[in-house]
């Protein structure tokens, strides 16, 4: 863990604040719609990745973060379509529902010491459950065809959280900055030390008085909440919800990929990852045209393998840490080369 730059609570925030203000002014340059769209998507993807990495970096690897995106976005959209409850309220309710689901899944997992592969598979199952439930409840969710939030009546756009790209740019920017602030707050608290100790050795951590279940649960709730917020905002921005793109294994692995590629040990890593994945996505879409559906996963997959082989700490790891982590290099045993 890096020591804090300053002991003051807001120390070291000046530069980020200036950067944020500069980003907030981007719409004044009136960039083309397409560019705005890509940048908003990047911010929201970055938020989801930041949420995932928040727990991923402590060895709590989730393959089911799609569940939180799905719960929050569908809760929000259904509240609006069925009861006319504004997304301004719907999003907090949806996020709360996702956090509640995270507790429901996390508490027994941590209490009963479900770790490593097992935890990953439990979250995978949870993500799939949410996806299948959305498909199965097709009478109200539209099933695999997806659903669209109803258009607001003229003049009610603000109430319905439906406005153009500029408005969403600011909302996405705020949400993203909120995610980074949450990361910073966690890093400055005792919890991050406790979690680092837990990741190293759970029994030893417990023996020095760290409340393992509580600490893990806390970071899981934050992580799920951020991912859920990203999911709800994405759905509201696109005005379209689909079980495949908001829940299940596919989207969960995409979130993981972004966070890993950017580097999950650095606060800015998942954002770098989102820039790369969305940038790659768009250039492949332009480059391959109709072949895009096949080419994108193909290229992603190769990159993911290469990252794991050569750059497991991601791009941020490359930028941040000059000194190599004290980790023994993989040993391709020599004796194997001798015999086929």
């Amino acid at each position: 863990m890096k020591p804090d730059r300053s002991s003051r609570p807001l120390g070291g925030l000046l530069l980020p604040a200036i950067l944020l203000a500069a980003l907030a002014c981007v719409p004044l340059l009136s960039p083309p719609d397409y560019l705005m769209h890509v940048m908003i998507t990047m911010l929201l993807t970055a938020l989801a990745g930041t949420g995932w990495a928040m727990m991923g970096r402590f060895g709590l690897v989730s393959f089911g973060h799609g569940a939180f995106l799905g719960i929050a976005s569908y809760t929000m959209a259904l509240l609006w379509n069925l009861y006319g409850i504004t997304p301004w309220l719907g999003i907090p309710i949806g996020v709360a529902a996702a956090v509640a689901a995270a507790v429901l899944l996390g508490y027994p997992s941590f209490r009963l010491r479900v770790v490593g592969h097992y935890f990953a598979l439990v979250t995978l199952a949870a993500g799939e459950i949410v996806r299948i439930l959305i498909v199965a409840l097709r009478d109200i969710t539209g099933g695999s065809l997806g659903m669209t939030p109803e258009q607001a009546e003229p003049g009610m756009g603000f109430f319905a959280l439906q406005f153009g790209k500029v408005g969403f740019w600011w909302i996405a920017l705020l949400a993203w900055a909120g995610g980074l602030l949450a990361w910073r707050a966690l890093d400055r608290s005792m919890s991050s030390k406790a979690l680092a100790a837990i990741a190293e050795d759970e029994d030893a951590a417990a023996s020095v008085g760290i409340r393992v279940t509580r600490e893990k649960l806390k970071v899981t709730m934050i992580s799920a909440g951020l991912a859920a917020l990203a999911g709800a905002l994405t759905a509201q921005y696109r005005m379209y919800l689909n079980p495949e793109s908001l829940a299940g294994l596919g989207i969960s692995l995409q979130i993981v990929f972004g966070a890993i590629a950017g580097g999950m040990y650095s606060p800015i890593g998942p954002t770098i990852g989102a820039l790369i994945t969305i940038g790659l996505d768009e250039s492949l879409r332009i480059g391959f045209g109709t072949q895009f559906i096949g080419a994108a996963p193909f290229v992603y997959g190769i990159l993911l393998v290469l990252f794991m082989l050569f750059l497991p700490r991601g791009i941020a790891g490359l930028l941040e840490r000059r000194r190599r982590p004290p980790q023994s290099a993989a040993t391709p045993a020599r004796e194997a080369a001798a015999r086929p």
Binding site: V256, F257, G294, P297, F298, G301, V305
Partner: peptide, 15 residues
């Protein structure tokens, strides 16, 4: 995650 990458590669190649 590396084998997860292979998952995407095979899916993409098949598509």
């Amino acid at each position: 995650l590396a084998t997860g990458g292979v998952l995407f590669v095979l899916q993409g190649a098949a598509t």
